[in-house]
């Protein structure tokens, strides 16, 4: 096997290894969630200061937001640490494929709509 084939194989392996892809997802998930979470917490704080009587329902809501936000990075961290222990059945291949296609259509639509917005801005 030539060195170029070997490096291509190792690259393919890297991108199909669940643990390593989970690490990528962990890093990107944390980076992506930082700004929306900060904005949401600031909005909730503003809502409390505007209406102190609403503190009773805003604080549980803020806790729920923090827990749900931390859930996804925690899940990817757990997958990164122990993804090797998984025995994935063939039955779930269809679900994985449907999920990947759903995300693919979502990204495609987002990019197309952003391109349309940019074109409108230029026009």
């Amino acid at each position: 096997m030539s060195p170029s084939e070997r490096s291509a194989d190792s690259l393919t392996f890297w991108f199909t290894d669940i643990q390593k892809v989970a690490l990528i997802n962990l890093v990107l998930g944390v980076l992506t969630l930082l700004e929306p979470t900060r904005n949401l917490v600031q909005q909730l704080a503003a809502a409390i200061s505007a209406n102190p009587a609403g503190r009773l329902w805003v604080i549980p809501l803020e806790i729920a937001v923090c827990v749900i936000t931390a859930l996804i990075p925690a899940f990817y961290l757990a997958l990164f640490r122990s993804g090797v222990a998984l025995h994935i059945s063939v039955r779930y291949r269809t679900l994985a494929l449907v999920g990947a296609l759903s995300y693919g259509f979502y990204i495609l639509d987002s990019l197309l709509s952003q391109r349309g917005l940019a074109a409108d801005g230029v026009a």
């Binding site: 991108f15 199909t16 290894d17 669940i18 892809v21 989970a22 990528i24 997802n25 998984l86 994935i88 059945s89 063939v90 039955r91 779930y92 291949r93 994985a96 494929l97 999920g99 990947a100 995300y103």
Partner: peptide, 10 residues
């Protein structure tokens, strides 16, 4: 990518 990795691993 993660879903495709799962697909290959299953």
């Amino acid at each position: 990518l993660l879903l495709l990795a799962i697909f290959r691993r299953a």
